Simulated scan of single mutants.
Amino acid sequence: MKRMRLARLALVAVLAGLGGCASLGPTHYYQLDGGNVRAPASKDKGVAVWIESLQLADYLQRDVLLERQPDGSLATTRDHWAGPLNANVRQLLQRQLASRLNSGRVVVGEPPEGFEPQYRLELNVTRLDAGDRAPAVLDAGWQLRDAQGKLLDTQVVHLQARHDGDRAAQVRAQGDLLQQLAARLATDLTKVAQRGRRDNETARKEPKKLVEEAQAKPTLPAVVPIRTGAEVYRF
């Protein structure tokens, strides 16, 4: 009798444990949506961009997926990122920038041997999250420099996107925000490149303009003394 009672208790404990696990639900793994990208026309042409620094906020340096709460706090979920989030963000931005700039020379991280960038980019993502009752939010800033390290431009952006509330929709919205960030970066790079071309064109024209202005100035006739043959005596 005692053995039967113990066996029943053990069975109840096992069933309770299974029921608890079922109530928690399975673990899901997510990856950011990189969107539809078009491969560059050539791997060796286009503006050469080096994203030499890409930093994510400390709370994003983990594989577990965090969810923003209505009070602003972050809660741990049972779900995980399918691989390091940092690598996922790097790949997404590289593919998006290459597509938007139509350039096969967009490098993230350590550049290959012989690569000579025209522009160097330092990017810092300080926030990237969402919640079932909170929109997806991305905060980021970047510094754009030329090949010699001269600062050309700096930007700070705050982006938001609404979603349907479930976990998959949250992750999809975060991917959309990163695509918007890539669009902002491509626009900034294009504007800076166009400004650089205008400045170079002006610098080439300036010496020629100075020569033309000097040649156009009227010249005064040389002063020639007039000799009359008269002599002047002073006493």
Rank of each mutant, 00 (worst) to 15 (best):
K217V: 09
A147L: 03
G229Q: 02
L152D: 05
R198K: 13
Q170M: 14
L181I: 00
G114H: 12
P221W: 08
V106F: 13
E213Q: 04
Q118V: 03
L24W: 12
L138E: 12
A222M: 11
V232P: 00
S103K: 07
Y59N: 14
S73W: 06
D71L: 13
D153K: 15
T76N: 06
V224I: 11
H28W: 05
L189G: 04
N102H: 09
G175N: 10
Q160L: 12
A193N: 10
L181K: 00
A214H: 05
P218R: 00
V137F: 00
D132T: 01
Q118H: 13
E113F: 13
T154Y: 06
L74V: 06
D188I: 03
D199Y: 06
L177M: 03
A216M: 12
A136I: 08
P207T: 07
D164F: 14
Q69N: 07
A169F: 01
A216H: 11
K2W: 13
T219D: 05
A87V: 08
D139L: 09
N36Q: 14
Y233A: 02
P207R: 04
L15H: 05
G196M: 09
P70A: 08
R234T: 15
A82N: 12
W142G: 02
R167Y: 14
L93G: 01
Q179H: 06
A193M: 00
Q69T: 00
D79L: 07
L185I: 00
L189F: 09
Q155A: 09
K150C: 09
G175R: 05
G19Y: 09
S99K: 05
A10W: 03
A130S: 14
R184Y: 02
N86S: 09
L9I: 13
E231F: 04
A16E: 02
G17K: 05
T77I: 14
K208F: 10
R184S: 09
D166Y: 08
G34A: 12
V224M: 11
Q94S: 02
P70M: 07
G25N: 04
T27S: 03
R120L: 07
Q143G: 14
D176K: 05
V106L: 13
P221C: 03
P135Y: 04
A98W: 04
V89G: 10
A39Q: 12
L97R: 06
L138H: 10
Q215D: 10
I226Q: 15
D58T: 07
S103I: 03
M1F: 13
K217S: 07
S103L: 09
Q118R: 15
A169V: 03
V157G: 04
A147K: 02
G46C: 07
N102M: 08
V47G: 00
L128M: 07
K150H: 05
D176A: 07
P135D: 06
G114V: 05
P218Y: 01
A48Y: 01
E213I: 03
G34Q: 15
I51Y: 00
V157F: 11
G72C: 08
V107Y: 04
Q148H: 13
R105H: 11
D58Q: 13
D166E: 15
T228A: 01
R127P: 01
E122H: 07
V108H: 04
Q155V: 01
